[in-house]
Amino acid sequence: MTSEIVEGVRRAIELIFTGDPAVLDATLRSLYISGTATLLAATWSLPLGILIGSGSFRGKRTVKGIFNALLGVPTVGLGLILYLLLSKSGPLGVFRLLYTPSAIIIGQAILITPIIVTFCASAMESVEPEIKDLARTLGASEGEARLAVLREAAPGVALAVVASFNRAIAELGIALMLGGNISGLTRVLTTTIALETTRGNFELGIALTIILLSIVFILNFATNMLKREWS
């Protein structure tokens, strides 16, 4: 078994560096789907997070509590609910989204919404309350003062977005249940790894795992660098 692993890693590295089409295909699709899902989720989650983090309104704690609880949603659970909604006989069946990249995008976007909202809200809350008054007394208009507050929260917000992308690209449940692992259409890194491993095709699985880990590590590293640069 040990020699199999060593051989598998050797072959995997070969696959990566020769630009194997199966590897390339799954990698690019993963980046596209999870990238789009992150952008999509950001369009509603960032404003929501900023609103929750900077405003004081009745029920704020409850709202935050709900998003906190949603952080732990199991991907297969969410996958199942969306499967039922999107399947042909389901209420959203008319859109024929099941087993398309769009279905995975929507699923992942919903999955990571609580991550962005929660982290973004806490980034806003950690900005010192005096920053706004400071900007004002230095001559900023109300709009510029709000912008100054946002800029203070920027490192935390960037971290929220990167963390959510990592969660999206590394999840399996939604991609498998809503995408169906169709070759050349919805096959992404995680689903291919799962499939190839059950088939005993370890080298491809290992190659894709290396790539997946590299993406996650590089992004985390870059964010940390960026954070240090900012502060």
């Binding site: 010192e128 005096e130 920053i131 008054d133 400071l134 007394t137 100054a148 800029r151 203070e152 490192p155 900012w230 502060s231």
Partner: peptide, 10 residues
């Protein structure tokens, strides 16, 4: 105004 508790932009 300069505040008592010093605040600086990050």
């Amino acid at each position: 105004m300069v505040f008592q508790r010093t605040v600086v932009f990050n």
